[in-house]
Design a protein around this nucleic acid. Structure first.
Lengths: 398, 398
DNA sequence: CCATTAAACTCGTCTCACGAGCATAAAGGA
DNA sequence: TCCTTTATGCTCGTGAGACGAGTTTAATGG
């Protein structure tokens, strides 16, 4: 379907130059290990076009081909791989206590290259350490690096960190992470990127509309449509934790009243137990699940929390109508620890007509790697465009 | 940006056949009265291409050209219009008490052709009456009709009406509205389509991400990204009224607890006044605004309702990050009647970092015509595609 | 009435994909 | 072992769509 209010697309032949090539590269990304014959079939390409396109891409070091294992009669085809001197992106995941820096070829699988812990609350130090790592990777891969994407446990607007309860940061400038001028630096919220990764490679693969929800400190998540997170006007979409689904009497550190955040993470469990707010809601929540084994009061507190979580999920399903819901971080253990309470609240919160075939609510499958995969994905999205390939081709000819 | 999880796009030349033509037609839709020279500039088309494309489209009765008023020196250009024998779509708006049937040419402006009231609660009768009207229009326009779209005040899933509190309907089969076999019949929720129209032609024109919220019986609305409503997996997205933002003790007719629906429409005002639930919350709410003039109790009840509405809007802004919020139906009069309460609740409910530059909350500008415009828009979206133009061209050559 | 200006028209060229026909590399049967 | 079958890759002529340089046209304004 056309996008009649989108920016005026240019129609020039220049923009058709990479049509077939991009389709092939996308297919390669989506199905690692795909054969050339398969790609041609899927894209309804003639064998002539397939020959021409793969030859061009091989020439430009955008892919390489190796003989495929024979599957029967007929001339054997080839498997398409990223080229050993092809473009790469750097993906960074900046979490509460540590960070990881990975490299991904155009198949989108990040391979962790460096990692480190940061006890420090000083953003400048963390940024400096991560920046060093990025620069080392950039030195190693040189011109092959075409973009850098950072997943950060923070609210991100217009590509900049605005605040982070998890990290204890206010606005932080991450532009120092760019290892070279002119290299695109993309910054995204970690839960948003994890959701994108789940929708592309994980539990929600294939779903047109997927909802990802994660609990760490508060709630994060995103609605993903056709592999792209609904980012909102400033990039801060998916802050479901700040819907007033919680206790209207409680003031959230974000400034609003009744945020769902306060009703589902470790702070909620502590409140139900009459204990003081935990310094680190994440580890407190994990510990509570262990304590619940032998302690009925803790079990009950966990159950009430799971119930509040299920009720909110039901509301989000009502409002957004996802085809599947994936749970990340503490969300899945919480649901598992009080499965009945969660399920009851979920069903009770659904509109009646949705109860016959509600969307599956499943555990995220990429675990801790989701955000890293998502960062690699958005970085590659940037590289695998007409403009990106134009730039790459300009560097790789003549 | 590519859509890496979307269906495998075909790459064949066949799909490039209409590239330029579609871009020109889209431009024509977006800016009624544009000149050919303007379109060429905007799309970065060479004058040669513009000549070629417009000639082809004229030949196919997809557009016509008339001399433009001279604006200065130079050879005068032409204004692009829908062709008098070009394709049209039928747009239907099926509301609580009446219906309208309109015809739109490819500029997307629906012109009402027939209308009627339906006191009847019997869906079959209503569908029959509307179907007759559609058939009459179809008879008049013949093969020019390429699609029919129906905006209906009901929950729609997979293109079918599931239920409607407003109309008092359960599942209703609207396929009888199709005036001819093979003609696409698109069915959409009225608030969703009104939101799409606001984002394309109305108050939210130009916004990448827009939130439309309307109050009739309960709350309807949609998030619109680049002109396309986020429809969800089954097409029932945008049911924000069934987020549990209301009183958790109240059971909604939908089956869930605490729905926002109950906190913002006429039922909420009645409850605050200690009056019994109104039979028709819409007219009750309108009447309440009039009563509020001279009655402090009513004013207070309206204020509390506006406050609950503002709080919910704030939550939706937090969660979805729209660039603008448009208010339709009773939402705007409610906000206007208790502007201070609404604004205070809105601000108080926003995350702190959003308060500096919150998205504008404005009245929808298309009024009662929004849904009709939206229906025409999605019908045209269907017609103005490669496949749609292929079909049209097949009927108009040789 | 002619210079100026902006736009339309003409036409040769380019690029990309198609598709028919041919070449190639395997499996399987005689 | 050789030939047939099968699936695929390669070659090359064709066609569509857009470009862009050069030319023509229709207006304004001095």
């Amino acid at each position: 379907m056309a996008s009649p209010t989108g920016r005026a697309r240019s129609v020039r032949a220049r923009d058709a130059r990479w049509r077939g090539a991009l389709a092939v590269l996308d297919e390669m990304r989506r199905r690692p290990g795909v054969t050339r014959a398969d790609v041609a079939r899927r894209l309804a390409l003639s064998t002539g076009s397939a020959t021409e396109i793969t030859a061009r891409l091989r020439e430009l070091a955008l892919l390489s081909e190796t003989p495929a294992a024979a599957t029967g009669r007929g001339r054997p085809t080839t498997v398409l791989h990223p080229h050993p001197r092809g473009p790469v992106v750097i993906a960074v995941d900046l979490r509460q206590e540590d960070w990881r820096c990975a490299v991904a070829e155009i198949d989108g699988r990040p391979r962790v290259s460096e990692e480190g812990r940061h006890g420090s609350r000083h953003p400048a130090k963390v940024v400096a350490a991560v920046g060093e790592a990025v620069r080392r990777v950039h030195d190693r891969f040189g011109g092959r690096v075409r973009a850098v994407a950072v997943a950060v446990a923070a609210t991100v607007r217009h590509g900049a960190v605005v605040q982070s309860a998890t990290l204890g940061w206010d606005a932080v400038d991450l532009t120092g992470l760019a290892p070279a001028p002119g290299l695109p630096l993309l910054v995204g919220n970690d839960a948003t990127l994890a959701g994108a990764a789940e929708a592309r490679y994980g539990a929600a693969a294939g779903a047109g509309t997927a909802l990802h929800v994660t609990i760490e400190v508060g709630v994060g998540g995103t609605l993903v449509v056709d592999g792209l997170p609904i980012e909102g006007a400033t990039g801060a979409g998916g802050e479901f934790g700040h819907l007033p689904l919680g206790d209207p009497a409680l003031r959230c550190p974000c400034g609003a009243l009744g945020c769902w955040d306060l009703a589902v993470d470790g702070r909620a469990i502590a409140r139900h137990l009459g204990e003081p707010p935990p310094r680190d809601p994440r580890s407190y929540a994990q510990a509570a699940l262990a304590r619940a084994e032998g302690d009925a009061a803790v079990r009950s507190a966990v159950g009430r929390t799971a119930s509040g979580f299920g009720r909110g999920i039901a509301g989000l399903i009502n409002a957004l109508d996802p085809g599947i819901v994936t749970l990340g971080g503490f969300a899945e253990p919480l649901r598992a620890a009080a499965a009945e309470e969660f399920a009851a609240a979920l069903t009770d919160g659904l509109m009646r007509f949705r109860r016959a075939d509600p969307p599956p609510v499943v555990a995220a499958t990429l675990g801790d790697d989701g955000a890293l995969h998502g960062a690699a994905a958005i970085a590659l999205d940037r590289v695998l465009t007409e403009e990106g390939l134009d730039a790459w081709a300009a560097d790789h000819t003549g």
